[in-house]
Design a protein around this nucleic acid. Sequence first.
RNA 1: GGCGCAUUCGUCUAGUGGUUAGGACACGGCCCUCUCAAGGCCGGUGCACGGGUUCGAUCCCCGUAUGCGCUGCCA
Length: 441
Amino acid sequence: MNLVRVRFAPSPTGFLHIGGARTALFNWLYAKHAGGTFVLRVEDTDKSRNTEEAAAAIYEGLHWLGLEWDEGPQVGGNFGPYFQSQRDEIYERYLQKLRDAGHVYEDNGAIRFRSPREHVVVDDIVCGKIDFDLTNAETHPDITIRRPDGGWIFHFVNVVDDIEMKISHVVRGEDHLSNTPKHIELYRSLGAEPPRFAHIPLILNKDGSKMSKRDVGASLNTYVESGYLPEAVRNYLCLLGWSPKDNREKIAIEEVVRLFELEKINRKSAHFDLEKCSWLNGEYMKELPNERFQELAWAILVRAGIDLSQFSPEYVRAALDTCVGKVRTFAELPAYCGFYFRDDFEYDAQAAAKQFTPQNRQLLTTLREAFDESAHFDASSLEALFKTIAANLQIKVGPLVHPTRLAMTGSSAGPSLYHLLEILGKEKVLARIDRALTTFW
RNA sequence: GGCGCAUUCGUCUAGUGGUUAGGACACGGCCCUCUCAAGGCCGGUGCACGGGUUCGAUCCCCGUAUGCGCUGCCA
């Protein structure tokens, strides 16, 4: 019987760090792969007031990524409570054990753990065997486990909880590697068998600098609010420090679960590349069922301050349909299709200088007449109309399309012109040509 | 400073004691095309450096450099 029990033990800071999200992901992957249990434990030893509120951001992030925990807050379990702030009695009990065995002493009101002063070998699944020499008290001072005010220190409660919760594998960030020998000393002094350790490399910024709270993209929330797809972000995170070894980039989570091994995690820290994450997001967006695309698109447009209620649902739906497959993230959508929902947009200055020439004024006037007289205003009729006019003038359709697009959207890039003309409808199309004509000439 | 970990294209990575060192993102070019994307084709850039070991090292060993982490009565 070798039950795998892993945990994600964040401290409630009010947001889920992208590195923490990946740590949670790797724990979750290993639990799923091994048929084990994924525990969520909130390390709120700081006794900060709004623990529940701050922890909520972590729950939301995990839920968003689809990393459901088997034990912990909201779901319960046999090893609770899952908040360190509620486990005081347990810590008292373990402290007494250390006291009884003479492993602790008081120092200015704080309680410190007396190191056995030996070599400790950490046999890490990712980093290999590392021999730490803890014999020198100058370089490796005894750790404090309790503050004078009674507050507990991370090293102690973390170890106690992992013992109590029967954690079999500690999968955490490499920033804890140097702490691990001290933790092992604690396990031994408490008469407990240390778990297996797997220290995963950190995630750094693209330029190699440390990713701090302030960096764009450091919080998972950035991706949620920018309209990234959780499956895309999760996929990208899987590829940071792990790979299926067969060149696959877009890979179903079930497949990752099947292939995932702690032994195959890289030892090198990874730089977060938003470009690649966005590309992957675009790949997922292409396969999005239309319903979900519409739903997410509406949400991002409303968030961007566009009042969709003044348009018919059919109009909005048709407008959004012209954007499918054209953007990599939903965050790009408001700028991409905003012209459908407002008439007072700005014109791209560079494009205007190029397209709104005296010569093109004549073309726009010609087009206006043709639109006005056109009995049909669907995309294919419009396309035929453009081609007829171009043929009559002995020019390509490009010279007709470009100024028209700019007049309709204010931009030189956008959805298919013929389709957007159909959706805007004759009335708006004529009005927008008039607006361009009066604005620029 | 001490201790620890790391080092394959700009980035994520595959890989081996003898390979034309593979893929992806990004980038450049071409094709397609109503624009932009998408798609297709082509292209450049990489084994940090110095010593060993070896017939031969990107791969093994030792240094150096650089980066990151720990060195808290933070987690």
